[in-house]
Structure formats: C-alpha cells, structure tokens
Amino acid sequence: MPGFGYFLSCEEHGPADLVEQARMAEQAGFESLWISDHYHPWNGQQGQSPFVWSVIGALSQAVSLPVETAVTCPLLRTHPAVIAQAAATSAVQLDGRFRLGVGTGEALNEHILGTVWPEAPVRLEMLEEALQIIRRLLTGEQISHHGKHYTVENARLYTVPDEPVPIDVSAFGPQAAEVAARVGDGLITMAPDEAVVERFRRGGGGGKPVYGGLKVCWGTDEREAVRTAHRLWATEQLPGELPQVLPTPTHFEQASELVTEERVARAVRCGDDPDAHVEALSAFVDAGFDGVYVNQIGADQQGFFDFYRTKVLPRLRD
C-alpha cells in the first residue's frame, strides 16, 4: 500500500503556520511531509515564501515524520555545493528521515541573480552535473570539481549523515523521466501519468520509488472552494513550459487571467465529498505510485485535516 503524505506550501504560509500544519498532519495520520522550495510565490495572492532550510530545521524539532523538499533547484540561485551542505545538515537534524527532491526549476525563482535562464535540455545537463557534486560531498570526503557548469575547490562537509541522502528527481516529460531514472533514487511528478512512470521504469528506474503530489480544496461550500482554488492556484493550470519561463509573480497573475474557474474545478478536487477526494488519490495508486502527497489550498487547514483523518485516509488504507 502506498504511503500518504502532506505537502506543505511555502508559497501560501509563513514558517510558524507550516510547522503547525506539520503537527496537524502527523496527528491526522499522514506519514510524511513534502515542502516546497521557492524564492517567490507564484502570485501575490499566495503571499509567502520563507527560506525552506530554516523551516526544515524547525520541523525536525516539531514532528517525527520524514521530510522531503519538493523540489529544490540546485542549478543557479543556490550552488550545488551549498545545497549539499543544507541537505546533509537536514538529514542529521531529522536523524536520517530526509530525502532531497530536486528539479530543473523555474525562472520565477532562479533568475533573481541576473543569470541567463537556460533552455530545458541545458538545465537537465546542469542537474546531472550538480547531482554528481552533491553526492560526492555527502560522503564527507574533500573534493574538487572542474566541470562544464560548476567549479568546486577543496570542499568538504564535516557534518554528514551516517547514510547517504536519497535524491529524487522531478520529471514531467519523457526526457526528464529518463534523466530521473538514470541519476535519481526516485521519481517525483505531479500527475498520475502512467506513461511518465513507465518511461521512468524502462529508462532504468526499475524498482526505484515513484512519488506524486496533488492539490485539493476542502470546504463545505464547493462553489466557494472552487473560487478559493482559482484565486490562489490558477497558476497550476497554465499550459506547457509557460510556468518554467515566466519571471515574476505579476507575470503569472497576468497569464492566469486566461484560466477560468471551470477549468480549475475540473482539475482540482473541491468540496467535502469523500468519494471525490478518495478517487483523486486513488488515481495515483492505480498508476503505480509508491507515495502520494496532498496539499490543502486555503486557510481552513484544521477542517481539512479533520476531514482526511476521519473520512479519507481510513478508506484509502482499507
């Protein structure tokens, strides 16, 4: 049976609220946590974006659940040697209950230092090189690296976990799925897409775990829940590579004017029908996922956790 986790949204909530949600998630019966890693929110309505590594430190003291970044981009905004140190410390703080989720990122977060935003194939190439550096540093040995994209000289991590940190790679298309199979310890994706899972398995993913995530908006008034989901997360319905190339929350707000409430209602489970929520998560189970992470959109977190504790998670496990 796949595990069911909760997805903490740094774009919507400040650090204290995220820690409290983690506590509620553990009490509700969720088995693990994802946490997003952003510099900006997707739009101004979301309104937050705390530094993920500080929040992970707080989570290590607040809950006993495993934690994974979903996902960190170790390419431009933060050098892979620094990400390696952050991941190592997080794994030590969490006593081995940490996984590093990585991806090729979005211009929204990564362009802020004024660097060129590379095309997707180049970012995949950079990701492979970055993971080589991170894995070597996580051994605790001193390394130097002079590669195509990165230079590291005489670097050594002195605070490292006893076991290697698993690194899962985010992928949405076939080329990224093949890279994830080749260099990752697992796959992260945000739709129950059997074709992506199969491409990952055939490309070398074999028995490696596959994790998926989705957003829902629980509420007793389904129409109001749809409006909330549309106000906060219409950005998720933008097509193609657009979310990877738009540079600011304002640009996302402009593009999201083209996304209707009806489109959001079709894509996001809204309301308080247990069958609809069970169906949404079961789609990932049926597609062969090993873990599913769900995020509640909006402010009513306690109502969501009560609903999932009593009406959704027991049915999924039965």
Rank of each mutant, 00 (worst) to 15 (best):
R97I: 03
A107I: 03
A91I: 00
V92L: 06
N109F: 12
V92T: 09
G103P: 06
M126C: 14
Q132N: 11
A91Q: 03
G101H: 03
V92Q: 08
M126D: 07
S90K: 01
T115W: 12
G103K: 07
L113Y: 14
A86Q: 02
L108A: 05
V122F: 05
T89F: 04
W117K: 14
L108F: 10
T115G: 09
A130N: 07
A87N: 07
S90Y: 01
G105N: 12
G105D: 11
H111A: 10
A107F: 01
G96D: 05
Q93Y: 04
E110F: 14
A107K: 04
P118C: 11
N109H: 14
R97G: 08
E128K: 08
A91D: 02
P121D: 15
V122S: 09
G96S: 09
P118F: 12
I112Y: 15
V122P: 04
V122D: 04
T115H: 11
V122H: 06
E129W: 03
T89R: 09
E128P: 04
F98E: 09
N109K: 08
V116L: 15
E128H: 03
L100I: 02
T89K: 00
L94S: 00
T115Y: 15
T89I: 07
L100G: 04
L100V: 06
V122T: 11
M126V: 04
R99H: 06
G101K: 02
T104M: 09
G103R: 07
L113P: 06
D95L: 00
G105H: 08
G103L: 06
A88W: 00
G105Q: 14
D95I: 00
G96H: 07
E128D: 11
E110H: 10
E110M: 13
E106Q: 05
G96I: 03
